[in-house]
Structures are given as C-alpha cells and as structure tokens.
Design a protein around this nucleic acid. Structure first.
Lengths: 222, 222
DNA sequence: CTCTCACTGAGAGTGACTGTCAATTGGTAG
DNA sequence: CTACCAATTGACAGTCACTCTCAGTGAGAG
C-alpha cells in the first residue's frame, strides 16, 4: 500500500460520490414525504446502493441529515492554526476555520437541513446530541489552552454557554425564517456574550465564591 | 366520573406504584448488566407488568431513566408563583420551585441516574434532547415575561445560555465525583453568569450592533 | 349489584440497526 | 498483462425498540 488515509484514489472518490448521492436523494425524499415516512431501505434503493452500505457510511438514519454539520474534532490539525485571545475570539475563528461548512459555503443547504431538523422530534434530539458533544470537545480545547482541568467548573460552564449561545442563535435564525446570513447571527450571539448578556446588571459583583480559581480568562495563543 | 385529573383514587395510585416499581427494577438491572444489555421486555417481566404498559407509562426506554428529571412545563401553575427580578434570579427560584426533584430531595437517586446517563451514549443524547427542550420552554417563559417575541435573538441566546450553564454544572458535578450538593454547584453556575463569565473582559463593550433592542433585561414580576 | 368505560395485556407487525460471510473490485507487485 | 492481496460491498438473518389493534378486566358511579 502506498499511504493509508490518502484522500485521492478511485476507491475514496467513489465512496465520497456515493455518500453525496445518498444525502441528496435522501433530502429530496424527506422533503417530499417526511422524515419518518421514508425508510433507509427506500433511500438505499433510490441511490442504487445496498442498505448495508448506507449504514456503513452514515451509521444512523439521522446522520444522513446531520453528518459533519455541527461537529468538530479536537485533534483537527487546523485547530493549532487558530490563534486567538479570549475564548470568544477563539470561538469566532473556530467557526470560520474548522466549521466553515456551517457558516460558509452552501448556506442554502444548511437552511434546508435546519427546516428538516426542526420539523422532526427525532432529528431535533439528534441535533441536540451532536451539539452537546461539541460542548464536550470545546471544553477539552478550552481546558488545554487555559491550562485548567477539563472538569473545572468555569471551563465546563464556559464551553456549554458558548455552544448554548450558538444554538440559541440557530433557533433565532430558523424562527425568523433564516433572516440574514447565519454567520452574522452567530457573530451577534458571541457579541452578546462578550457584553456579559446584561442579565445580571443590578447584582453587585460578588467577590468570587470558592471556585477553583478566577484569574482573567484569556486564552494563551500557542 | 367525579373529576378527571384527580391525584387520588385506587387507579391512579396503582399506576404511580407501578411506575415507581418499574423505575427501581430497571435501574437495578441497568447497574447490574448495563443499559444496552437489558431489554424492555426483561424490565417488564421483572416488574410483573406487560411490555405494553411500560411503553404506555414511559414512552421510550430512555424515559424510564430520565422521566421528569430534567424537564419543566411552561403551563405549570407554580410558575405564576415565582416572582423574581432578573432572569437569573428567576431561574434560581425556578430550580427550587418547579425542579425541586433535581436539586432537592433524593440527591442520591440523581447521582445514580447521572452515572448511568454518562456511561451510555444513547442516554446522553436523550438527556441532551431533554435539556434543549427545556431551553425552548424557558425561552417561552422569558419571552412572555420580558414582553418580547419568542424568536428574539436575546431571548433565545439567554435561555440557551442559562440552560447551557446548568448543563455545564451538571458535567462538572459528575466529573468531580459529585462533590458537594448539586444545588450549590448550580448556584455557582448562575453566579458565574451574573458576573458576566469574565470571558470578554479585555474587549471594549461595543455600542450594541443592529439587534432587536437592548434595554436592561429585568423580568417584570407578575 | 350492575353498568360502563378507562386501562391492561396479548399478539402481530414495522423498521432501525448489527453481525456475518461470500463475492467483488481497486491497488499493487511481478 | 496478470496474479495477488486487502479493502469494500451486498445479501441475509437476527435483535430489539416501538406501534397498533383488540378483547378482557376491574375501578368507579349510580
């Protein structure tokens, strides 16, 4: 073998083409008849592929819709190239660098997926699971860069809050009929976080309870 | 019929007892053999009840573990009695008033559930779904009290952020071997939000981009 | 005591998903 | 070009969560 894990080669290209075809066919069928009403077997048949392979490619029926859209990988090489100050600045760059598929090209496709996901409970739950997994990963990244334990309260709250804010933005985007580019909406979500959400304004800043520590939270850029 | 929706009566008591028995039996079996390895049919048999009824009671296998634990109802009568200033103060009271089961009595049970949930991907996803459903509901409550549309960006971000913070706390609690009462952990999460998370500190507060509006976010108490 | 109807249990059926195995096909060395 | 190897595929059988239907039963009302 030449070099395992190569991205070229007929084999790999066929696989990628098949996956794209399956996704396109499936989205059409889902739009036409509804997610529940379409079986994986029907998708397979309409895609000229065996049901076995559909499962090999996507794992679950939900992943035919969601695959790769709302996840990122802590070991992604591009992560090292992201070099930012605060966790929020870091997150901003992350969205562009590693999750470009979500905020960048082919937004039309993302709208179609969102409409589909929001119209089906099973897909909503699957999306929540995906997003939640992203919180975990983001927590690990934050922990590493802030040099704190992964289970640190502030790290966990921070990562989940950031992801929550973005998910809130996604809901807003969907609820307003996809008004404006998703990229701008998510940017405004991070703006809100940076401004402290203005939700605790009247409360006098308490002198920090017995947490792990509370030095200013700035990400060291590697 | 005397009064539908009554909480007494032999019928209702039987149902409640059966559900409690099923949950107890199921948790034992899950701890013993693992969640995946136990079938609903086995749970039903060990509980002296038909599989049909298990599904009637809980709907899904996951709900046998999760039912009622991480959800709340926007039409809950007790909501009206919660009367607080900022959304975070409101959330604090909410946890005690409506979700007492989570932060209050029988914390031992909650630990057992958390351990189980965190050890199984399917349950983790189900929990995430439950939690994000709570975001939706909380968003509706915030929107109503702040007199803003439900899809308002700040409302959505706020509700998802609050729920995210609590979920982060839950992870911290689990990751640290359930150190201290859950109630205190969740309180510290809300404290962090009140202090603005200190994550955007070095950034000069931008003069508010073209959002929907940005008056001080204080909940009117009904 | 009797009527009634909500709830229960039994059973059949659907579809997502898994594991196995033989056939096939792309990549490579001779 | 050919032979070989390894990865991939499709066919098939099986499991299990979950749904639907329907007849039987027991709680509750008069």
């Amino acid at each position: 073998m030449t070099d395992p894990g190569q991205d070229d080669g007929l084999r790999h290209r066929k696989r990628t083409a098949a996956m794209a075809r399956i996704q396109a066919v499936a989205l059409d069928l889902f739009d036409e008849r509804g997610y529940e009403a379409v079986t994986v077997e029907q998708i397979a048949e309409a895609s000229d592929i065996s049901p076995s392979s559909v499962y090999r490619y996507f794992g679950t029926k939900e992943q035919i819709v969601l695959l790769g859209e709302f996840e990122f990988d802590a070991s992604d090489a591009r992560l090292a190239t992201v070099d930012a100050g605060t966790p929020l600045e870091f997150t901003r760059q992350l969205l562009r660098t590693v999750m470009g598929r979500l905020v960048g090209d082919d937004e039309q496709r993302t709208r179609r997926q969102m409409r589909l996901v929001m119209s089906n409970p099973a897909l909503e739950v699957a999306l929540a699971g995906q997003v939640y997994a992203a919180s975990e990963t983001l927590g690990e990244v934050f922990a590493a860069r802030l040099e704190r334990p992964t289970d640190d309260l502030e790290v966990q709250v921070l990562s989940h809050v950031v992801v929550g804010a973005l998910l809130g933005g996604l809901h807003h985007w969907h609820g307003t009929g996809f008004a404006g580019p998703l990229r701008d909406v998510l940017d405004r979500c991070l703006d809100l976080l940076e401004r402290g959400l203005q939700v605790g304004a009247p409360v006098t800043p308490t002198p920090a309870p017995g947490g792990t520590s509370s030095r200013p939270t700035r990400l060291p850029s590697r």
